[in-house]
Each structure stands twice: as structure tokens, then as C-alpha cells.
């Protein structure tokens, strides 16, 4: 395990997302308490922690999906490329084109595979014509590592694919809008081990182009795919650092307890 970690050490990279003093409230519940984190570009950052620790909530702040929840309030600053995404002038719709998201449960639209991937480019006007759109769809499906499985049945419904294929289709759909950041909310929790392995391999490839933030319940998964890991506990960001360090030499006793299985 240790050798594997050593290989993955990354150089200092460009800062992509930086959060400062982020507080999130659901009504009266204080869900995220004073979180500060810097997420680097072209890196996989994993958020781990026990259920209800706020890691998904924080993830959903990064593309303002929490806006759709009426009782949710976000305070503090989240900057992407130095721009405050909670600024009044920022349209969340535009933000979400830049910050794509993949959800816990594969949720393809009940449409054809092609239309699933083409939907984003269509509404954002990324394709000039049909051939252009075909190219975008093919590129996205290739990046989603699913092109070879579906290239002969692009008209088949996306909901007819297996769970793992559906999730890779959803990744392709997210990639099709050319985002810069990709948020993944427990993308493998509904998948079997083989599909999980495929998606994890894909996440590692995606790192070349995107800044990937992944929430996961599985510490092994965090260890396998991420370069940076953040440990959340009861709404606090307890520890954040190189994945190798977090898993082998955590500084906070809570992190150690969680990693060794004493809490969580």
C-alpha cells in the first residue's frame, strides 16, 4: 500500500477551487462548520467521512446544487479560478456548465444514449451542426470509456444499460459539456465491484483533463483513486492533505480512528 502511495505523490499544481470559512445551514441545522480547503487542478480530491458528516453537502456547494433546496443557506466564499461563485452576478446555470456533476445513483434521462450525451452540448449551443454534435458525443463517450460498448446502439434507451454502463454514460454526459471541474457524489456506491473498477480506472484518466472531486464512503476507493484526501467529521473538515499521508500518518486522532475503523 505504501509503495502505491509513494508513486502517486503529485507536484504542486495550480489552485482550482478554494473555499474559505464556508458554513452551510439546513434551516436551524449547522451542517458545514467553517470549512477551508484548496483543491488543485488536474487532481483527484477525495472527501471521506462517516454518513451525515457533510461531505456531500459541501460537494453540492461547489456547483450550487444546494440552491435547489429551499431551506439551505451557504455562507463564506468558494472561489473557482479566483471568482466567487456565490457572487450575485454568477448565474448557477452557467456555473454548472463549468462544474459538471455525477450523482450517487446513475440517473440517465429516459432517452436514447445519443440524446443523453447530446443534451448538454445542445442546450449550451456547443455544436454548430449535426456532424459537430456527433463528434462531441463520440468524444464524450470515449472519455467516459463506454464508446466501444454502445457505438452500435446509440439510439437505444440509456436506461436499458447496466448499472455500471449507466454511470459511465452519466460521466460521459457530464464530460460532454466541457466542464473544468467534475464533482462525483459516491459514483460507485450503486455499482458492483467490476463496474466500480471500471469507473475508478476512468476517474484516473479523467484527471488529465479535469479537476475531479469525489465523495466516497469507501476508504479503499479514496486510497486507490485520489491524490488528495479530506476527512470530514460532524460538519468539520478535520484533516486535509496528500492521500498517502492521510492514510498512513494522520495527524488528527479522529482521522486515525476513522481510518482504522474505530469510528464511522
Amino acid at each position: 500500500m505504501k509503495d502505491l502511495m509513494a508513486e502517486r505523490t503529485v507536484d504542486t499544481q495550480k489552485l482550482k477551487i478554494s473555499a474559505r470559512n464556508v458554513q452551510v445551514y439546513y434551516g436551524d441545522t449547522h451542517a458545514i462548520k467553517d470549512v477551508n480547503v484548496d483543491i488543485e487542478d488536474k487532481t483527484v480530491t477525495a472527501f471521506i467521512g462517516p454518513s451525515g458528516c457533510g461531505k456531500s453537502t459541501f460537494l453540492r456547494c461547489i456547483n450550487r446544487m444546494n440552491d435547489t433546496i429551499d431551506v439551505c443557506r451557504v455562507q463564506g466564499d468558494i472561489m473557482i479560478d479566483g471568482e466567487d461563485i456565490y457572487d450575485k452576478r454568477v448565474d448557477p446555470v452557467q456555473l454548472r456548465a463549468k462544474v459538471g456533476m455525477v450523482f450517487q445513483k446513475p440517473n440517465p434521462f429516459p432517452k436514447s444514449i445519443y440524446d443523453n450525451v447530446a443534451y448538454g452540448p445542445r442546450i449550451h449551443g456547443l455544436a454548430k451542426n449535426k456532424a459537430d454534435l456527433d463528434d462531441i458525443v463520440e468524444r464524450a463517450l470515449r472519455r467516459g470509456a463506454i464508446w466501444n460498448e454502445v457505438k452500435d446502439r446509440l439510439d437505444a434507451p440509456g436506461t436499458g444499460l447496466s448499472g455500471g454502463q449507466q454511470q459511465r454514460l452519466c460521466i460521459a454526459r457530464a464530460v460532454a459539456t466541457e466542464p473544468e471541474v467534475l464533482l462525483m457524489d459516491e459514483p460507485c456506491s450503486a455499482l458492483d465491484p467490476i463496474a466500480t473498477a471500471q469507473v475508478e480506472e476512468l476517474i484516473d484518466e479523467l484527471r488529465q483533463n479535469y479537476s475531479v472531486v469525489i465523495v466516497t464512503h469507501s476508504m479503499q476507493q479514496a486510497a486507490r483513486v485520489s491524490q488528495k484526501t479530506a476527512f470530514f467529521h460532524l460538519g468539520n473538515l478535520v484533516e486535509y492533505g496528500e492521500t498517502g499521508t492521510i492514510f498512513t500518518n494522520p495527524t488528527d486522532p479522529r482521522t486515525e480512528s476513522y481510518i482504522t475503523g474505530r469510528i464511522g
Binding site: V93, R96, N107, H124, C170
Partner: peptide, 17 residues
């Protein structure tokens, strides 16, 4: 299912879309 709404919002569709 709300997952369909999430999926659409997630790729940058507006609420109305």
C-alpha cells in the same frame, strides 16, 4: 424522480429547461 431534475440541472440546464 428528483434524480431526473438533478441530472438536468447538473449538466447546466436552467430550471425551465
Amino acid at each position: 424522480p428528483p434524480s431526473i431534475r438533478d441530472a438536468a440541472l447538473g449538466v447546466g440546464a436552467s430550471k425551465m429547461q
